[in-house]
């Protein structure tokens, strides 16, 4: 008997509903860390790449993926860690970048710093620290509205 397995597109939709545990306004798919979803017979294989080597959210992310997919009735599931190619902020989705900015986190820019203040839009900015509250962020300040804000580091 061939049971109807959910399509790969459906699984991607489910994963796109799993929020990043540290920045819950974007999904794991928006973050670009889901690198592959395939069926091997009746087993679902999900490849996940870490953002930063030591990101403490990695194990929570795996747990959240597993919980979400089990909740959708996936019985046989394997999560594989994929290191190569290394994660880059180029993989952030357009939707994710927009959601970050609306939330008050400036999205990554190739120039290496935020384009504008996520609060008032000014480009009169200074860097407070190269690092921030999570491995993927740095701290900046707007010199016009004086609000400090997080910048999503570009790597």
């Amino acid at each position: 008997m061939v049971s109807a397995l959910p399509s790969i597109d459906t699984v991607w939709e489910w994963l796109d509903a799993v929020p990043d545990p540290e920045i819950p306004v974007i999904s794991l798919v928006d973050l670009g860390i889901i690198r592959g979803v395939v069926w091997e017979d009746d087993k679902l294989i999900v490849n996940v790449t870490p953002t930063y080597s030591g990101c403490p959210a990695t194990s929570i992310i795996n747990l959240d993926i597993e919980t979400a997919l089990r909740g959708k009735g996936i019985k046989k599931l394997e999560l594989k860690r994929q290191l190569s190619p290394p994660w880059t902020t180029d993989w952030l989705s357009k939707k994710g970048r927009k959601a970050l900015e609306e939330y008050g986190i400036a999205p990554p820019q190739p120039a290496g710093g935020p384009a504008k203040c996520p609060q008032c839009g000014s480009d009169n900015l200074s860097r407070i620290s190269q690092f921030g509250s999570t491995p993927c962020k740095a701290q900046w300040r707007c010199d016009d509205c004086l609000e400090p804000f997080d910048y999503f580091k570009c790597i």
Binding site: P50, Y52, S53, G54, C55, P56, I128, S129, Q130, F131, G132, S133, P135, Q139
Partner: peptide
Amino acid sequence: EEDIALANTALDLIGQ
């Protein structure tokens, strides 16, 4: 800010 930077550096190194 330096405290946070040092902690993040240490974290990257633990991951590696």
